[in-house]
Structure formats: structure tokens, C-alpha cells
């Protein structure tokens, strides 16, 4: 790995300043970034660690639902969100393995927007608000395709606000070696309607399945999905599964998520 300057600010304001330098990048839990740097796919000149910023950590009930600090590790969300939003806590408790959950953070996951990551589906299905150092971004505007988001250069996610649904569940099918989702579905039922977000499957990253949302909005039951089919055309095709396989899997998992949420 190429060497770099390591900086660990204690406030968001200092982190923003430190990130203004050329070649500077933020580092959260590092569970994706560090392996990427080892392969020299990413060679920052300065890393700004966000793990020492107290104002970016923790889970609490607040205006508009559950507020999760962006630098909160998955293990803490799994434990502390359980009383308020069990489906979100269960998702956090199923990411990677225990060591990854000790370090990896929700902000890091959302900023990276890996097409197979779990958290983007929770944010999109919940209609979460991504709070940064400069603005608030609706989840519907935030995810912009493979590893691509609405974040500007040097902008830091500080908090994620989740409206809490009446019923919700996340079900994923693990790729057995990497444990990343081959497909994962988050279903959230609110009084005003149902939101369904699918991760792991599409070439464009996480997306909402509009037909399933209206069918489930009319009748929140697995049978509502019977006549619906996702197209495999825009799905990821690789040695682990074809696009058609992932499309089918996403539908099966949506049914399972509805059952788990009911």
C-alpha cells in the first residue's frame, strides 16, 4: 500500500477542513477502503478518519424517526436500533461478519453505494434522509447508480434519519463465499403505502420496485406479487448467477420479506 498522511479530527468542521486538501479522502470503518488501497486501486495522499468524531456516533429517536450517526458501526446499530426499528437492526446484524460489524459504518456503506451492500436498501425502502455537513438529501435523490451518489467532493454524511414503518423486513440471499447479497430486499409498510427496495441485483445499484409497491399497497400479502415479474435485462450477470436468476431471486425474496414483516 502506498503511504499517506493520516489525520483524525474530532469535529465535523475540522474534518471538512482537512478534506479540502488535494488528494484527501475520508476514511470511516475502512472495511472496503483499506482492501481497495492494498490493491492500489485507490491511492489517497491524505486520509481523514471520521471515527473520532463523537457528534457522528450513536442511535437515538428524534424528529422524523430514528437518527443514526454516520460513523456508527453496524454492531452498534444492531444493538441500539433493535428497540425502535427491528428490521434495520436485523439488517445491520447480518452485514459481513462480527469483525466487519465492529468497524464498518452506515455512513461508509451509503457513501460507497456498493451495488451489493445491504444498507442502501434500508435507506431507500424507509425513505430515509441522508444528512450531510451541508444539506439534507432524500434517499430517492441520493442513490445515482453503481458506486455513485449525490454527494459532492468533500461532502460528509453526518447522520441518517429513518422514518419508522409499521411493518418491515429485510431478507437477503448471501453469495456463499463473499457473504455479500446476491440479492437483498427491504420491504417497508407505512400508513401511506409500501416501499420495496432491491439491492445486490441491478447493474444500476439499489432500486425501488414500483409494481410490487402498488400491489402490496393494495393488499400487503405475498399473493399480491403472483402476477408480477422483474426483468433480468438490467440485472448483474456473473459467475454467481445470471440476470434472469437474480430477477427471479429478487421476487422470491420480496415474498419472503412480506411474510417476515407480516
Amino acid at each position: 500500500m502506498r503511504d499517506f498522511e493520516f489525520v483524525k479530527p474530532a469535529t465535523v468542521a475540522d474534518a471538512v477542513k482537512a478534506l479540502a486538501a488535494d488528494g484527501a479522502q475520508p476514511l470511516s470503518g475502512g472495511q472496503t477502503l483499506i482492501p481497495t488501497m492494498k490493491q492500489r486501486l485507490n491511492t489517497p495522499e491524505r486520509l481523514v478518519s471520521l471515527t473520532g468524531i463523537a457528534e457522528m456516533k450513536g442511535v437515538c429517536k428524534g424528529e422524523g424517526g430514528l437518527h443514526v450517526g454516520a460513523a456508527t458501526p453496524h454492531a452498534v446499530v444492531a444493538r441500539d436500533a433493535a428497540a425502535y426499528y427491528p428490521a434495520l437492526a436485523a439488517l445491520a446484524g447480518g452485514i459481513g461478519d462480527p469483525a466487519v460489524r465492529s468497524r464498518g459504518t452506515i455512513g461508509g456503506s451509503l457513501a460507497n453505494n456498493d451495488p451489493s451492500a445491504c444498507y442502501p436498501s434500508a435507506a431507500l425502502a424507509s425513505g430515509a434522509t441522508i444528512v450531510t455537513n451541508t444539506r439534507k438529501i432524500a434517499a430517492d435523490d441520493y442513490f445515482q447508480g453503481l458506486f455513485s451518489t449525490a454527494l459532492e467532493e468533500g461532502e460528509i454524511i453526518t447522520e441518517v434519519r429513518f422514518p419508522i414503518p409499521e411493518k418491515a423486513a429485510y431478507v437477503k440471499f448471501n453469495q456463499p463465499a463473499s457473504r455479500f447479497a446476491l440479492a437483498g430486499v427491504f420491504v417497508a409498510k407505512f400508513s401511506g403505502g409500501v416501499r420495496v427496495a432491491i439491492t445486490g441485483a441491478s447493474n444500476d445499484g439499489v432500486f425501488r420496485w414500483a409494481e410490487a409497491e402498488s400491489a402490496l399497497g393494495a393488499n400487503f400479502a405475498p399473493s399480491s406479487l403472483e402476477g408480477l415479474n422483474l426483468s433480468g435485462d438490467d440485472m448483474i450477470s456473473d459467475l454467481h448467477g445470471t440476470g434472469a436468476y437474480r430477477a427471479h431471486l429478487a421476487k422470491v425474496l420480496t415474498k419472503r420479506a412480506v411474510i417476515a414483516a407480516s
Partner: peptide, 24 residues
């Protein structure tokens, strides 16, 4: 970050030692 042979505890939490910077 796959094998876990480098697992150690940081403030009581298990981490993969190969996927954490010493300075962090």
C-alpha cells in the same frame, strides 16, 4: 479481510487487525 486469522480486540470489540490502521 477474508480469513480472520488476524482477529484481535480493540476496546473489547473484535476486529481484523489487517483492516485497521494503527493510527486509527
Amino acid at each position: 479481510s477474508q480469513c480472520g486469522a488476524c482477529t484481535v480486540h480493540v476496546d473489547g470489540q473484535q476486529v481484523k487487525g489487517c483492516t485497521v490502521f494503527a493510527l486509527d
